[in-house]
Design a protein around this nucleic acid. Structure first.
Lengths: 351, 351
DNA sequence: AGGTACTGTGGGAGCGCTCCCACAGGTGAT
DNA sequence: ATCACCTGTGGGAGCGCTCCCACAGTACCT
């Protein structure tokens, strides 16, 4: 059991000093053992470890943070209201990946919502106080000032979904371009010739990349560019439904739709139903994200899966590296790293 | 703007000492201003505040934690896998209430999952290191050792859903007894005479209280006790379905069912359908929780609503009090506080 | 006039660590 | 033997706060 060591006047937790006395060594040596330094003899190490166990010693985090100027904590910042966080499986998958990668670390993960101005203000103060060693940023809009604040405070950060091709932060993303391509190629291979695209929010870089992939797939298959088959959506169900209605009015002969998200596809499905089109007989439908909604749709939705958990793990890897690299002076941000992970098409009955 | 004060050798963040020098006062006075002590003259306070603003001073959390022996952080511990956390609206509501109550505080909220042994081990170490000032415990099973660990470490804690009538921790709960009563009284007032009950997990105190409320309502209405109308469930859909089938076999004449949760009611509904009973014509159905599932059921489910967000807020209140009370020596746990919040019946088409 | 009691203030003494310099003792080349 | 250079170790000097004691100044009693 733990909890002897009632040495200090208040019977509080044992300190390094007490462990040192117990093991018959100096304070520095105990510190070395605790922190896994190799410059300790085996015999000494064993003695210290015994003392630690006997006293039930646990390092004082605050003291360590003060002396070493680090917090051993990183924040996962979600610039969305909590409701969206719980509604979208994206976040829980991300959290799972991050948590898994962090579990053999001493690092503590903080989950911080910054969905409204008040929460953002709090976050700014939090970051200014340097209460975390690094930040993970997910789902950031193009005009968000957060990345700049982070850069100004010189806090290591990794972003999921770069804001543009010229993203200055280290970033992790899935292959939106390739994912879109594979979706369209899949539809073409099924014999569809008039493939429409309902886009995501146009101020989101990933949505742009999906448009690029859509265009490239058609071009490479020898189709002439046809902007009339593209309609802007906004990642919502209603937007998808609206866009689909417009497309049907403009191109009643379309036989396939690639939607920029599963939710968008759900909206499109609704509009297709109302127009009396059958899925997939009349119009094939492909979504993006492979979320729960895709599996439960009627008919089940073909979708592009992103390796979200792996993205989370990768983000942590990169962030821990940045934190470790944050050395006195010398090189800063020489190599900005942009990792892109492959997607996978999951074919179901809708195409 | 922030960020002058490049006094220290490394150009780092300004310290208390520097603010004091700038304002022409002593260190102690600045500390008093920062911490809102009343024993500072208005003139001095103004001077210090000006210096703070000019230098962009932000207190160093680690130093404060070390000197004051507190962390200004509390943990919301969820002894469930993350999947359940995201699946059940209970947790997001709770989180919202907690977050709201905490937003005008300096306190930082940590979300900690302890769904498997490994996570539990980590949590134990975390608590042993006293990295939080207090703990919020939600959804704890009767045999969970966590509350005892907390007590042993003398960490203030508040539990939602006491483990028994003799709960030793400060607790917040909704009125399970009253909620069950109101559900049954509602059914009786609708002219139903043979009201069955599908219980929750019997090792959950709240489920027992709901059974008590069910019995009391029937007794007070002059009905003779009839244990044959009670069947054990386990809060799951499958359990509800199974229990309902047993009840129908045993008491084909029942005309109403009070289920211990909405999910249980969903299972019961399934079994009723399969037996060819109409809801509510043949059998009226009432659930518990008023979750999303209740609103979306066909027909919409009458249910007992718990004020979950308010429970979250109340838990924070109590916890902050406990933390503040944790004074040197003197009184400890003299008054254990058990708060019970009222529920509300939401009548819909199923009854 | 002296006492008592406040208010407001300065600054010493830690809090429990990490960092780093100093140094003992060993080992091998000169 | 002397020197150079390792490995392992002890402990001083902080890190930036809070706590608390001391004390000046003022106010109000006797």
């Amino acid at each position: 059991m733990a909890g002897h060591g009632a040495r200090n006047r208040s019977g509080g937790r044992p300190t390094l000093e007490e462990v040192a006395a117990r093991a018959g060594v100096g304070r520095g040596t105990v510190s070395r053992v605790i922190n896994g330094s190799p410059r300790v003899s085996d015999a000494t190490r064993a003695a210290v470890e015994a003392a630690v166990a006997e006293l039930g010693y646990v390092p004082n985090t605050a003291a360590r943070a003060l002396a070493a100027n680090r917090t051993d904590a990183i924040a996962l910042v979600v610039p969305e209201p909590e409701t969206r966080f719980f509604a979208e499986p994206y976040f829980s998958d991300m959290l799972r990946g991050v948590g898994a990668e962090l579990s053999d670390t001493e690092m503590q993960l903080l989950l911080i919502f910054a969905g409204n101005d008040r929460e953002r203000q709090r976050l700014a103060e939090y970051l200014a106080a340097h209460r975390v060693d690094g930040v993970l940023l997910v789902s950031v809009h193009a005009d968000d000032p957060l990345p700049d604040l982070l850069a100004q405070l010189e806090i290591p950060a990794v972003i999921s979904g770069p804001r543009s091709a010229a993203e200055t932060l280290t970033s992790v993303d899935s292959d939106n371009y390739g994912g879109a391509r594979s979706a369209v190629e899949h539809l073409l291979s099924r014999g569809r010739g008039r493939v429409a695209h309902i886009t995501g929010r146009l101020d989101v870089y990933g949505a742009q990349r999906r448009i690029d992939g859509y265009r490239a797939a058609l071009r490479d298959a020898g189709h002439a560019p046809d902007e009339g088959l593209i309609e802007a959506g906004d990642f919502t169900e209603e937007g998808g439904s609206r866009a689909m209605a417009k497309l049907l009015a403009r191109r009643p002969d379309l036989d396939a739709v690639f939607a920029a998200s599963d939710v968008t596809a759900a909206g499109a499905r609704q509009a297709l139903r109302e127009a009396g089109r059958r899925i997939p007989e009349d119009v094939a439908l492909v979504g993006y994200d492979d979320s729960a909604i895709a599996r439960h749709m009627e008919p089940p939705l073909t979708s592009v899966r992103q390796p979200i958990q792996e993205m989370g793990r990768t983000m942590i890897d990169l962030l821990l590296n940045e934190i470790a690299d944050r050395r006195p002076s010398a090189s800063r941000g020489l190599e900005r790293r942009q990792v892109v992970l492959a997607t996978e098409l999951v074919a179901r009955a809708s195409s």
